Amino acid sequence: MSGSPEGDGSASPTLTVPRGTLLRSRVVSDVGTTLSRALDRGLTGYATLVPQETLLLSGKARGVLTFEDGVPVLAYNTVTDSGGPDALAELAVPGPYRVELYAVDRSGLAAAHEEESLRVAPDAAATELADDADLAEWTRDAAPGERLRDGDDEDDAVAAFLADDDRIDAIREQARAEARDRAAEWGLDDALDGSAEPDGDDADAAAGDGAVSGGAVDR
C-alpha cells in the first residue's frame, strides 16, 4: 500500500506497507471498537479508516493507522499525505467509519515504523478519534517504555515553549505587525484600530471540542 503516487513531487514521507491479511471489515460508529480489538489481540498490522461523510462529500480523509502489539504507531492520510498528529486531526470527524483491519508480519512494518515524522503518541488515537480516556490509559499501560518516554519528551518540549513568555510575546508582536502590514495593503487600517485580544476566559470559551462522540457499534 502506498499513500502517494510516484512522481507527485510531494515532500511528505509516504507510508508503504504490505497488503496484509484482512481480519475484519465493518462500518462502525465508534473507532474505539477497532482500537480496543487491536489492543486486545495484540495486533501487529494496520487499520484503514474512511469516514463515511468523506465518501458522500468528496472529503479528504482516508487514513491508515498502524499497530505494533496492539499499540498505535503511525497515522497517515492517504489523500492529503499528512502524517502523525496532523493525520489524526483530519480523521477526527463524526462517524460512521468504514474500517478494515489487517494483520501484517512484524518485518513488513519495520521500515515504515522507522519514519518518526508519521508517529503518534500511543494513546493519541484513543483520545483524538474515540474520545475514550479509559482506552487511552489501557493503551499507555500496554505501550513499551521507550514509546512513553518519546511522548513525554514531546510534551516537555511543548510545555517549555508555552512557558517561554518572551518568545510567545515576540511571536504575537510579529503576528500583529504582519496583520497591520496586510491591512495597510488592503486599505483596512481602520478595522484594526482599537482592536483587542480576547482575555484568557474568552479564549477558553471560544475553544471548540474536536473530539468524536461515540455511539452504537455495528458488531
Rank of each mutant, 00 (worst) to 15 (best):
D152F: 13
Q174R: 14
G145T: 14
D181K: 02
D164T: 02
D134C: 11
A159W: 14
D153V: 12
E137Q: 10
W138F: 08
E185P: 05
F161K: 08
R176T: 07
D152G: 11
A136M: 10
D165W: 04
A179H: 12
A157F: 05
D169H: 11
V158I: 15
E185K: 13
D169T: 14
D156H: 06
A133Q: 11
I171Q: 10
T139Q: 04
D169I: 09
D152V: 15
R182S: 08
D165I: 01
R182G: 04
R147T: 12
D134S: 15
L148H: 04
R147F: 03
E185G: 15
E185W: 11
D181P: 03
P144Q: 10
A163T: 03
F161R: 13
E185H: 12
E137I: 09
W186A: 15
W186R: 14
A142S: 12
D164H: 05
A175L: 00
R182I: 04
D164F: 05
E137P: 02
D189M: 03
R140S: 07
A136V: 04
D166T: 02
F161N: 07
D190A: 06
D132Y: 01
D131P: 00
A184P: 06
Q174N: 11
I168Q: 05
W138Y: 09
A142F: 05
F161H: 12
A184H: 14
W138N: 15
L162C: 06
E185N: 13
E146I: 12
A183H: 07
A136P: 02
D152Y: 14
I168M: 12
A184G: 11
D153W: 05
D169E: 12
A175W: 00
A136D: 06
L135W: 00
L135Q: 03
D190V: 01
A130D: 08
E173P: 03
A142T: 08
R180K: 07
A142L: 15
A160Y: 05
D164V: 02
A143Y: 02
A133L: 11
E173Y: 01
E178R: 02
A179W: 10
D190H: 06
R180N: 07
R182K: 06
W138P: 08
R147P: 10
W138S: 15
D169Y: 06
D181M: 02
D131F: 10
G151Y: 11
D131W: 10
R172N: 11
A183G: 02
